[in-house]
């Protein structure tokens, strides 16, 4: 059994006394001085705060478990459906494994084709998903984490115009700055909302397979499926889960597993860190209205205004 550690980007005092975690919890307070933590908390939203802390968590886990040679990071929305052995096999002699959001062009964007997210939105958030990362202990990994930490802690803002998007967009530099970076092109890895339109699943007893080749699915990411407001694609138009029995079955099974862990008591707790407010996701008529008004703004910017007589 692999050792599991939960990095808590929150205040552990918020947890109920009788909550028993089967896994050791490493609180963010153990990584930063109170003033450093406060500084990060003040400048970021909760999402940005957690992202800014990620590289330091990874460094801390390597330091606390000195005999550990491989380290997998998974977002809490990830669910492993298969042994991690294929991941460990790919990791041999590598620094870092990266999984792209998409392994092929969606083919449904561009003039007259309005599917969203389009590829240019992916450029804004980064093409490699930071919700799953696999590292081996090495000098190269130490250098990568040290660089990533310096960037993510100071620049984890979501600000597309400045080229910023959490810890994730920085990973675009990883394959060019560091050696031993593998971009994994295997569709059985990291199955999720954004790639399910290109991947049909098939349930076979307790395992899940890719329908077209029977390959077992290694892990899925339920971000944006479990909670549609979470993640970078709250307005995605490609996947309608209701029309995908495979996705509905997977989601149903996941919901049951999460419910068994007493979710309700925890979801009511507001994050203690990340003081900048998150913009709520708007839907329905509000969404239609904001989209129309944004288009109106663009029109005002570009419309020809005749010179006024002096």
């Amino acid at each position: 059994m692999p050792a599991v550690v939960i990095g808590l980007a929150d205040d552990p005092d918020q947890l109920s006394q009788d909550l028993q975690s089967p896994y050791p919890i490493l609180p963010v307070g153990a990584l930063f001085s109170a003033s450093e933590r406060q500084h990060l908390s003040d400048q970021y939203t909760p999402v940005e705060f957690a992202a800014a802390c990620k590289p330091r968590f990874l460094n801390a886990v390597f330091a606390r478990y000195p005999t550990v040679e491989t380290l997998l990071y998974a977002d809490p929305n990830v669910l492993f459906l298969h042994s991690t052995q294929p991941i460990l096999d790919r990791l041999r002699n590598q620094t870092l494994l990266l999984t792209p959001y998409l392994l092929q062009a969606p083919g449904d964007t561009g003039p007259g084709k309005k599917a969203w997210p389009d590829e240019k939105h992916l450029q804004n958030i980064g093409l490699y998903n930071a919700d799953f990362l696999a590292f081996t202990r090495s000098t190269e990994t130490t250098q990568l984490l040290s660089w990533w930490q310096s960037r993510a802690e100071t620049r984890a803002y979501i600000d597309f115009c400045k080229g910023l998007c959490t810890d994730q967009i920085w990973l675009m530099h990883a394959p060019v700055f560091f050696g031993g970076i593998t971009i994994v092109h295997d569709p059985s890895w990291h199955v999720a909302l954004w790639n399910l339109p290109q991947r049909q699943l098939h349930q076979r007893e307790t395992t899940w397979q890719l329908a077209d080749n029977g390959q077992p699915v290694l892990f899925v990411n339920m971000k944006g499926l479990f909670n549609p407001d979470e993640g970078f694609f709250p307005h995605q138009t490609r996947l309608n889960p209701a029309k995908r029995p495979d996705v509905m079955a997977l989601l149903q099974a996941y919901r049951q597993q999460v419910a068994a862990k007493e979710l309700a008591a925890l979801t009511a707790i507001r994050p203690a860190y990340g003081m900048k407010p998150l913009l709520p996701v708007v839907r329905g008529w509000r969404r239609t209205a904001t989209t129309a008004l944004t288009a109106l703004n663009k029109w005002v910017d570009t419309i020809y205004l005749p010179a006024l007589p002096r």
Binding site: P100, L103, N124, F160, C161, G163, M172, I183
Partner: peptide, 18 residues
């Protein structure tokens, strides 16, 4: 830049992913 566009160059980021 706000829309993720920079001439022909930015698109080529996709090459090693695709």
């Amino acid at each position: 830049l706000c829309e993720g566009l920079f001439v022909d160059q930015h698109w080529v980021n996709f090459a090693p992913a695709y």
